[in-house]
Amino acid sequence: MTRESEQDVDAYVRRLLWALQTLPHDDRLGIASEIHSHLSDCAARGDKELDRAMAKMGSPDALARSYVEEYELAGAINRAAPAALLYAILNRATRSLAAFVGGFAALTLYLIALGCGAVAIGKLVEPGYVGAWKNGHDLSIGIASGPPAGQEMMGYGIVPAAALIGVVCFVVANKLLRLIGRRLLARTKPALPVAG
């Protein structure tokens, strides 16, 4: 390997290491060592082969992004962390229809769950302002900002009902995120970004 090739390889790996900052230290070093080894092997075959390998590897930032996405998804799925998983999926929303639709569906379900939780707790704290009121043909359910008009329909029955709906929405959102996460994780990026 020529001195110039060696410098090119080192510069590529340095940029890759920098771009992998969010990964665990040992994993970063492992990835950088493997890519360094690969490029060094290619350089040993000649400058042309090193140029080919670097072009096919893509920019250090793009390569790092592929790794980071794998880690984010795999890590969030393994840790069962809904917030991390939602973040990882929404991060891909601009590039994957499944991530876009599923991510926002899950987000909506979480917001509904949050709202239901607020209703269940609110009824216990401020019973007069939380409930389901019928006023003529109008039905309003939830937390009222002022003294509500109409007849209250559910009483304290709204507490278990809201809690049940909230739990169901939360569980469904979690399952949906995990399903999308596994599907996205199972996908490989195109083997060749541009076909020859």
């Binding site: 493997e34 690969h38 893509g58 592929s66 790794y67 794998e70 990026k189 083997a191 060749l192 970004p193």
Partner: peptide, 11 residues
Amino acid sequence: SDGALYPLLTR
């Protein structure tokens, strides 16, 4: 491609 292989191996 070289760039697709290593993330695939990681997965």
